[in-house]
Simulated scan of single mutants.
Amino acid sequence: MRLFSVLAVLTLMTGPAAAQMMNLLPEVKTMSPEEKEQDAIRQKAYRDSLRQIPDNKATQDPWGNVRSDAPKQAAPAKQPRTKTGSNAN
């Protein structure tokens, strides 16, 4: 009796899992010759439209007009200090 109840529970638990496994493989869809021709026309139009997009060769610098092109001047060299805190000259 126990064996029967265990088998019944296992069967009920594996039933939904087996049903889900049935739809793992999608249906194979075949195209008619007219559909293949229309698809080829669409693909050609897509490739042609991509060729019409210009290449962006210039560098994009959004801060280019904000920056100054003048080189920065070097800071004056600091003179070494002595133990008393005065400059050594």
Rank of each mutant, 00 (worst) to 15 (best):
A45I: 15
K36C: 14
K57I: 15
L3S: 13
G85S: 01
P33W: 01
L50M: 15
K83D: 11
K72L: 15
A17H: 06
Q79A: 02
A88L: 08
S86V: 05
A18D: 04
P80F: 03
Q38L: 13
R47G: 13
N89C: 05
M21Q: 09
P76S: 03
L24V: 12
T82R: 06
F4S: 03
L24N: 10
M22F: 15
Q73S: 12
A18L: 15
G15S: 13
Q73Y: 05
A75C: 00
A88K: 10
E35N: 09
I41G: 06
Q73T: 13
G85K: 02
A77R: 04
Y46N: 14
S68T: 07
R81I: 04
E27V: 11
P54N: 07
R2E: 11
K83N: 05
A75H: 04
K36R: 13
P62K: 06
L50T: 08
N56E: 15
R67G: 01
D48E: 10
T82N: 05
L7C: 01
K29M: 10
M1A: 14
S68G: 07
A58Q: 11
L10C: 09
P54R: 08
T82P: 00
T11R: 02
R51T: 09
A19T: 05
S68H: 04
R67Q: 03
K83H: 05
R2C: 10
S32N: 05
A19R: 09
I53N: 03
G15L: 12
E35K: 10
Q52G: 05
S32Q: 03
D48G: 02
E27Y: 09
T84D: 11
P26C: 02
W63P: 02
L50E: 15
V66S: 14
S5Y: 06
K44M: 12
Q79M: 02
G85M: 02
M22C: 12
T14E: 04
T11W: 00
T11K: 00
A75F: 07
S5H: 03
W63H: 07
A70V: 07
T14N: 03
N89G: 07
R47W: 14
A8N: 01
Q73C: 06
T11D: 01
R2G: 12
T84L: 10
A58K: 14
D48F: 01
D48L: 05
F4H: 02
M31S: 13
G15M: 13
V28R: 15
R47T: 10
N87S: 03
P54L: 09
D69T: 06
